[in-house]
Write a protein that binds this DNA or RNA. Structure first.
Lengths: 197, 197, 197, 197
DNA sequence: AATGAATGAGTGTTCATTCAT
DNA sequence: AATGAATGAACACTCATTCAT
């Protein structure tokens, strides 16, 4: 089954799935719920996605592309990286992880049940790529002298852990915009101490 | 719930529930699975827990007590805290979060679906208590001079985020014992730079 | 409930429910049994009725409408009532109560367990309406002189009791067609003595 | 299993069963409920009654003995029967049927589901005996001249129908004591017209 | 392409019964 | 005699999937 059909409905269903899988997990989310949220009829979901598992797979893997593009772009500009560039990068990461709430939840849902979902493989591969990306940044920063000596692997693990954990360290929406607080902490992981006034 | 019954079976069922809820989530885990894992018959699960939700609630909230005890003990010894004590504390935290894999997964599962599970309240309260605990440590350390000036609230959020995220930053068991790498990163969040040889 | 769906299946399920609830009571009757009796699949029952209780409610209350129509029609012709008309009416009532065996059983089942089934309210209301109907007939008959003086309320209670009890006063089908015997007795409740040859 | 055991507990369980079977039917009534109502422990019910069905059978059949004794006694005094004696008898019957609410409900429950409960046989036999009893009274009364000519079989059917139906002709407890109204109606079935003042 | 009625496997839960204490 | 923990068959109900329209 090719996918000429309406790309708009396809997207509506995707967004509905992302939201509901994030909020209720895989099993609790029903096709009926997704159809309703997407504003399409029950059977239409099956017109665009072969089955529930296929829709879930799409929700988990499709958004990765965007972040991969980000890494690709950032790599190209790495030779001219400065401390300021790094700070901006960290800020971008934090914003990305804080804003894509639905997507991040789905990711963590899958990582939390690795034996259950085969999608874990795509996420593993992505995490690996991201850590290597960070390690390259670390080496660049240490070479250029704007980062203190650290073990790049340690930092890459710690930084990813931190990004993944941010959204789990509080639950009330009120705190959701404290990006700057997290930014200072993230920079410390790179060995950068902000000066307190 | 001071039922006479067999506390051993109660515990078996609890452990089975903890494991399976962690691995498969709430809905995917069936009572039949839990009974099998616990080595009891189907109906026996209902002899010890009113229903599936009650067993889940127990799995989420009961283990909190142990960590609350830890915080209580650590508070009593806070007046005599040194940098070494703090390092040990951090090491304990990392070990705790890395070793209680099943429990941590369940926690993150609930935090990831806060609208769905009312157990989130107990976790919110606990997170609050933990952050205050860290903030008090920060103040003590800054007073005594073995911690650099930082915003205690920022650090407490960052540190909890880091602990919560550790287990989500990799998925292969092989990496699960890199406690020391994480320890260095955690100390950086407190403003402590280890000297690299 | 103006669902499009197939009204034929809806009716099949209704009839199956009426029969089985009558024969086995509410709890003993299973949805599986009803589906089988109706010649539909298990899940289809739930396509037409929200749940077992809703189907039961329909079985108890829907048939009342027909008898209410009967009373409405009879009221319109009450001004021209004669002894012969009354005799015909009584005969109709007896036939109705003797022929709708399934329905009458369900009614009596509910009346026998009034605390258990909320449907009792609709039946209460109906019984009230029926007794008032009989009382109006009594008054008409006494005014016109073809009924002897009696307490209309007493008669209405006695007559309803008699109608309800007919089907309970024997159990073998053989006796089920003795309509005429019951008719004579019913007329006596109105104060009419048939002359024995 | 003989039944030396405690007759008091046996009776408590019997009464509890009678009440709950009457109120909720057979399937809805649980052994646990009965034990609770009887004030004994769960397992004790099985000490006195082999199983649920055996207890139910006892509830249905045991009380018949009392009414059979009544008929036996009344038969002995039949030769000296007068209109006044008959009126008293009718009054007794009405009182009996109105007062033994739990028992009557259970009876009607069984009669309503004759294919389901084998106890129906004992009830059939009893109804037969009762109708013959009434027929003998009719003949005595007609012989002695205090009853008008009627078909004894018709009257016996009608009278039993009336007695069985009384409790089904209203549902509110308020009306439960209108014994006298029913008495007048019952006498009409025997062909006796009370004179209205 | 879009729909939703039909299906039945699979779920949580109840409860009569057994039996060791 | 009295108890209640253990068991698993049986139930109401949900929901992914199919398919005729």
């Amino acid at each position: 089954m090719a996918k000429p059909k309406s790309n708009q409905k396809r997207e509506q269903i995707f967004q509905a799935g992302l939201k509901l899988f994030a909020e209720n997990g895989y099993t609790k989310t029903t096709i009926k719920d997704i159809a309703q949220e997407a504003g399409v009829s029950f059977g239409t979901v099956f017109t665009y996605y072969e089955n529930k598992a296929a829709l879930f797979r799409t929700c988990v893997t499709a958004p990765l592309r965007e972040f991969k593009n980000h890494m690709h772009d950032a790599r190209e500009e790495m030779p001219s990286m400065t401390l300021t560039t790094l700070k901006n990068l960290v800020k971008q990461h934090i914003s990305f992880f804080m804003e894509r709430e639905h997507y991040l939840r789905v990711i963590q849902y899958v990582i939390g049940q690795p034996e259950r979902f085969s999608e874990i493989e795509a996420l593993d591969e992505f995490a690996d790529e991201f850590r290597h990306f960070i390690q390259d940044i670390m080496r660049t920063g240490m070479d250029k002298g704007f980062l203190p000596k650290s073990d790049p692997e340690e930092v890459s693990y710690g930084y990813l852990a931190f990004l993944m954990g941010m959204r789990l360290s509080f639950t009330d929406q009120a705190k959701a915009h404290q990006t700057s607080a997290f930014k200072n902490q993230a920079l410390r992981l790179f060995g950068i101490q902000e000066v307190l006034q």
